[in-house]
């Protein structure tokens, strides 16, 4: 989540600006914690299917790493495209 997504704070009085900024910080922390949990859930779900042992094997660990890295790159790309659309960039085929 990018702070610029969340609108313009310049027009507010100083006291409200501080409060709004604190609220945005809290939302960002909450969002990043949820993202962390959902990333773990997704990569666990896609990569771990065998419960004969207590520890991840090499193949599962590699799968989890790639899954997480791929998701983060995906998320950044979606964020870029999303920002372009938010700024009203023309979209043609």
């Amino acid at each position: 989540m990018d702070k610029s997504m969340l609108g313009d704070l310049d027009s507010l009085p100083e006291e409200d600006k501080i409060r709004m900024s604190a609220m945005i910080d809290q939302l960002q922390i909450r969002d990043s914690l949820r993202m962390y949990n959902s990333l773990v859930e997704r990569c666990f779900s896609d990569c771990v299917d065998n419960f004969r042992r207590k520890s991840l094997d090499k193949q599962e660990e590699t799968c989890v790493r790639r899954c997480a890295e791929k998701f983060l790159k995906h998320s950044m790309r979606v964020g870029m495209r999303f920002a372009e659309l938010n700024q009203g960039a023309a979209t043609q085929d």
Binding site: M1, M5, D31, R34, M35, S38, R42, D46, C47, C63, R65, R66, C67, E69, K70, F71, K73, H74, S75, R77, V78, G79, F82
Partner: peptide, 22 residues
């Protein structure tokens, strides 16, 4: 944003994770 990210991952990404690049 979170729903969009999730659904486009589900629709576009190969879940065998043969590499970490897109």
């Amino acid at each position: 944003f979170n729903r969009l990210t999730k659904i486009c991952f589900d629709k576009c990404i190969d879940k065998r994770y043969k590499e970490s690049e897109l």
